[in-house]
Each structure stands twice: as C-alpha cells, then as structure tokens.
Write a protein that binds this DNA or RNA. Structure first.
Lengths: 175, 175, 175, 175
DNA sequence: AATGAATGAGTCTTCATTCAT
DNA sequence: GATGAATGAAGACTCATTCAT
C-alpha cells in the first residue's frame, strides 16, 4: 500500500461518510487526496472497487474490535464491552467516520452482512448462558438489535443522549 | 392533488425506496409514472421538491400511525402496539416501501427528525409511569432505540427473524 | 426526423467518413452539427446507435442504387450500369462521403454484409446467362470482386485513374 | 532488435489486426507482449511510431513477396503467381494477420502506398507484353484492381469462396 | 396542464505519455 | 534497458433542469 493509495482511501472514507457513496464523485476524491483522478482507477479499478477496499478494511477493523470481546472470559465484561463498543468507536474522528460509513453503506447497498456479526453474537450467547439467562440466544439477538438502534440514533439524531441510554442499558444487564 | 401528481409521487416512492434517492433519475421516475419528465418539475419544482413531498407524506402517515397508539389508554396496549408497529407497517408492499424509504432517506440526508417521534415517546413515557417503571423516560427511550434497531435489521438483514425477537421483547415487557 | 436529427446524422457521416468511426468523438460530431452533445444520445442512444442509423440509411440507398440495375432488361445495360455504379456514386461530395464510409466501416467492423449485394449479384448472373457466358455465376462473382477492388483504389489511391481502368473493363465485357 | 522489441511488435500486430489501431490501447499491447507499458515508448517513441514500425516491416515483407514474382521469366508464371499471392499470404495465421492489418491500416489512414506495388505492376506489364496482350498496361492495372477486391472479400466476407473465383480468374488468363 | 426536444455541467472511465527509480 | 506509478486530457454517457409549443 503506497502513500498515495492510503491518501485516496482516506479521502474516499471521509467523503463517502459525509456525503454518501453515490453523491461523492471520483474527481472530488482525487482532489481531496491530492492525486490525479486516473490514479484512483489504476489502483482500485473503478469507483466500486474503491468502496470494496474500504469495506474490506472495515471487516478487518471489525475483527479487531470484536477480538477484545470474544476473548473475554468474564460474561459480565462481555456484555459491558459490547455495549460500550459504540462509544469506543466514536471517540476518534477518523474512526467515527469509518463506522458511520459502514452503516451508511448498508442502507445504500441494502446488504447487512450478518456474517460479520456472528463471532460477537456467539460470544454474547455464551455470556448469557454463563449468566443463567433463560433464553440466551434470543437475549443475544435482542442486544445486537438494540446496538443497531444505538448506532442509528448516535449517527443521525443530534439530540440523542447516548450516555444516558447506555448507562440505563448497562444497569438493566447489571454490568 | 391531480391523478398525474399522485402517480409521480408513487413512482418516485417506489424507485427511491428501491434504488435510493441519488441513484434514481427524474427520467426514470417520469417513465415509470407514465408522464413527461417536464411535468415533474412543473409540479415539484425540482428533484429535491419531489423528495420533500414524499417526506411530508411520511409525516402525515406517521401521525396517523401514532394516533392509534397515542390515544390508547391501557399502558400495556401502548407498549404492545408500539412493538408491533414494525410488523403492521410491513405487511402491504406499498407501505413497506414507504417506511423503508423513510429510513433510507434518514441515512442519505443524515436527518433523524426526532420531533416526529415525540408524540410516541410521550405516550410511552406515560405508559411506563402507569406501569410503575422506575425510570419511565429512559425506559421509553430505550424502547425507541430498540425499535430503530428492529427496522434496520428488518429492512437490511434477510436472515433476520423479526417475529422471534419481537415475541421475546413482548415477553420482556409482559405485554 | 427533426432538423437537428438530420444535422447530427450529416455531421457524423462527414466525420466518420473522414476520420473513421473510432477516431471521431461524439463531442466533435455535436460541435459540427451545432447541437449539444447530449442530444446525440437522446436521439441515437449511444455512439453505436448513431453509426447504425447511418448504416441503415446506407442499406436504403443501396437498394435505391441497385433498383435501377436490377430492373434493367437489356443484359449489356446491366453490366454497363454495374460498372459505372462507382462513378455515379462519387460525383456528389456528400454521396462520395457516404459510400466511402460504408467501406471504411466494413474494415473497422469486419462485416462485409454480403446479403446486401445479393440482388445485384442475381441481376448480373441473369445478364451473363442471357449474354451466353459459360459460367455466369462465376463471371458475376468475378465482376463484383473487381468492383470491390475499384472502390478500394478509388477511395485510397489518389494516383488511381479510374476512368481508364473502367473503360478497359467495359471494353472487355463489350458494353 | 532485442527480444522484447520483437514481442512488442508481434503483440501490436495481432491486436491492431484484430481490433484496429485506434481501438487497441498501448496498455493492452504491453500486457500481451509481457512488458511494461513504458518500454513501448522507449523503443518506439509513441503509439504512432509503433504503427510505423509495423508498416515498415510490411514494406520489407512485400518486397520479399514480390521478389519471387518479379524475378520470374515465364510470363504465364508471373500472372499465375500474382493471382495466387493472396492464397500464399493467408496460410499461416501470423502472416494472415499481417496482411489483413496492412489493409485495415490503409483504410484507417487512407494511404494506399501505390509505390509499393510498382515493381509488381511492372512485372505484370512485361508479362502481358510477352503474352501479346493488346493493352498490357491496362491489363496489368485491371489485374491489380481485381487483387485488391480479392483481398477485401477474403478478409471481410466470411461466405466468400476464394478458390472458386481464383480458379476462374486463372482460367480467364489461361494460367 | 402537459409534452418532449434541448442543454450544459458533470460522471465515471480510458488512454497515451512521462518520469523517478 | 526496464519498470510501474502517476498524470492530464479526452472519451462516452447521464442527468437535472429549461423552454417553446
């Protein structure tokens, strides 16, 4: 990955996250990245390839993000870390852009990519089993649905008080 | 609202919901609506005006949808009806398109429009007060977040079993 | 066929004939036709559609051109008119462009379109039968091959003296 | 001429013959030749230089091809060999490509290069003189025109039966 | 109200060519 | 000699919008 490749990816990430994939022209990406437009196509074949490259990075980041949770043995910690995932991924601007884009793309492409969540889901199921919940699987699913809602609100609703709801949720689960 | 105006709005709704706002050209809308392209601009000024008209319809529909819940006096019924809102709005194809579009647009425009939810939120708060919940406001917020997650999953994750999670949630709230 | 459509077709014909299909940009065509570039696509779908429109015109013109020969009853006249076809089609500039383009395209697309020649070929076979030639079919084929050579030379070889060779050929066939 | 130079020329020949000069990108040539794109420009300056190199090769090959005819003393053999030139040059795939390209280029560049044919033309004139033809010069010209037609048909008309017409022509000339 | 021809700016993409290594 | 990253201009095509009818 050369320096210019990185700057293209960075510029694309920012713009796609801000304006959306379709609304961002390759010429804008090139301008912000400080490279010629042609270079985008040499490295990523086409605009879609650029998006795919970003999505792939997303999968890697997701794996990294999940690793910390999946490897946790204390079930309460699993639940707590899962809930706080959203906060963790929104502190740094670049990272916030990144995850926002992942959600935006989901709606623009109408692909959820449930498989990416599977490791996390399993970790949650295990945790709920250990914690003696009656229906650990449903409980885990419920929680991931809530997380999706959390992201939606966090990224779209400027008036949303994430901390309050988050603390409330943590209390609910006793974590 | 003339007949042609209606058919333009209908065509736009379908296409925007399927392909997204940016990806749908006015010419496609005109073709599907069976009218000339120029007519769209005479009636809605520009492409954005067309979107605004649809969004406005959305607000009216939302009010209608919420009315049934807001007017309910039995608190359990309020919670139950709220939870089942998603199912109710996804039975008819045209309606499913409609609500899907509302979510798509939220992400494309990055406007949540929290004010639209206020009547529902208040109804929920009241219900939770009546039901004796400790923190009715947070409880209500938590529930709306969950609902947003539910919509996300329902519209994007083909493998998602909404009924299972929904029944589980209803059991949780004892409704 | 509106006025602008005609002027697009005319400009395209000239340019394709002069510079070749691939080497002529749609923007050049638009400029010469005095219309916006977009209009080309509204009327002919794509650059290829523009070419097809010209080719189709070509087929019609060819039918017209052949009609005079095919309807001729005097066999000597059939042969003579066939031989002079080349001269006839090269007097007016616009027509010369047109037929030159037909040949250019053949080489660019590698399609001969033998079926277009069939009526002429049959007329020639009949003529040679009437004239008592031993192998009328081969004789007719030989003549059409010669005609193709004539066109090649006429359009490409500036030093070529068509009249001399043509008179010689006419003498050969006694017409 | 280094090995890489040769492979560039070979790749260019094949591609230009198949797709045409304008339609073949230098990057395609480089890829097929298995060299970097830059190397083409180091060796041939620009895309046009590449074409010129191929054309020049064409002249050498033409000289070689004509030599056998020009040096022939038997006039009948001269005519026969001339007629069979087309067949001879189309047996080997690489050679067929080569001559096809020469014709394609003629039409793309609109340069006939009559001077290349001169030695052959003179040989034919001489032959027709020896054979006692009335107008040897015109006869020779007529024959070369026919040859151009033969090539046109052979390369473009898939349904064309070259052997039949060729044998007929040979019979005509009694060779 | 309604049409559809027409526009011009913009989109993604290709391509010949250059240049540092 | 050889590579391949990088460029800038140009290519085909799309699209929101206007306007005469």
């Amino acid at each position: 990955m050369t320096e210019k490749q990185t700057s293209i990816l960075k510029a694309a990430l920012e713009l796609f996250a801000q304006e959306g994939f379709k609304s961002t022209s390759t010429s804008k990406v090139a301008k912000r990245a400080g490279v010629s437009e042609g270079l985008i196509f040499r490295h990523f074949d086409n605009k879609d390839g650029l998006l795919q490259a970003i999505i792939q990075q997303g999968e890697e980041r997701a794996r990294l993000l999940f690793a910390d949770i999946v490897l946790e043995t204390d079930p309460k910690e699993v639940v707590r870390k899962t809930l706080e995932m959203g906060k963790k991924t929104s502190m740094v601007k670049e990272e916030a852009d990144f995850w926002k884009l992942q959600f935006k793309i989901k709606w623009e492409l109408e692909q959820y990519g449930a498989y990416k969540m599977e490791p996390l889901l399993n970790a949650l199921i295990n945790a709920f089993i250990k914690l003696g919940y009656d229906e650990p699987e449903l409980e885990a699913n419920f929680l991931t649905v809530f997380l999706d809602g959390l992201a939606t609100r966090f990224y779209l609703d400027k008036t949303f008080d994430m901390d309050a709801v988050l603390n409330f949720a943590k209390a609910k689960y006793g974590v």
